[in-house]
Design a protein around this nucleic acid. Structure first.
Lengths: 142, 142
DNA sequence: TATTTATATCTTATAATACGATATAATCTT
DNA sequence: AAGATTATATCGTATTATAAGATATAAATA
């Protein structure tokens, strides 16, 4: 029998521990909303300016300005829809992906170092766990 | 034999997938630096204003102003050191912990829902994986 | 053709970020 | 004890980020 509440809390504590120990030391100071936008753009295909406005909960003109700033920094680009030429898709550039990774992923060198110190069976357990969690998380539509 | 580079990349992709699917929908728009400061304060004991300045890489006067703003929002409080009365420790308030959790933890309801959909043995695998990772991550001093 | 829709721009306002200069009080040095 | 050092705080100033209302433009739709 699973004690779910306890497991949830346990995972959450360790989730933040792991991130705090293994995250990148980044220098480029990107803003809060910029990270939120990039996170969403990375995970979804064909997002428009309006979609992004809804996602971060601001008016469309504000979202339009956010995108303008991200373009100026070279983190995203725009691509007009061919079906409906009013719509504009926001595309992540390789530079944007790089900056986002530095802000959301674990530092590859640190993580590799950690995994080296695990036994083969422990490393396998970790690989399986992330497989299970991401498989089910993807189904979560809330 | 472990293919580490591949495992690292695999975990990182799933790490961001999971966060994107399960993070809280937060409304309070706290700034980038504020989150960084709160994250560090949560994980370390007895941090001074100077420690925090070094951590986020700004001058001491800037850090002092960050703390002032966090105090105004009720997210941290100050406590003067009794040994050295020049030093001031920054303490997280329950409100600060709440706001930080909303910005760094996974949504408890979503995570519980995900775990419910795992078999007992899968859930156990997940619990073990976080145990192993956080155990080794804690040793990472870089 | 009139209306709606999707973006963009302009104006205005506030908050966040940062640093140099300076102030203050506590501690350490000589 | 006097002077130097250390830890914070505050003031002045400047830039960037954030946001929304009003307005403009161009494409699609009724």
């Amino acid at each position: 029998m699973k004690d779910l509440k306890n497991l949830v809390n346990n995972i959450n504590e360790k989730w933040t521990d792991i991130y705090h120990s293994l995250h990148y030391i980044h220098q480029e100071n990107i803003s809060h909303q910029a990270v939120r936008l990039l996170q969403h753009i990375e995970k979804r295909e064909a997002l428009t300016v309006g979609d992004l406005a809804d996602y971060i909960g601001v008016s469309h003109n504000t979202a339009s300005e956010h995108i303008k700033r991200l373009i100026k920094k070279g983190l995203v680009s725009k691509k007009r829809s061919s079906e409906d030429e009013r719509r504009v898709f926001v595309i992540m550039t390789p530079e944007g992906r790089g900056v986002l990774n530095k802000h959301t992923r674990l530092d590859e060198d640190k993580l590799e170092n950690v995994l080296e110190n695990l036994s083969d069976s422990e490393a396998e357990t970790v690989a399986k766990a992330f497989h299970f969690l991401s498989r089910e998380a993807r189904k979560c539509s809330w």
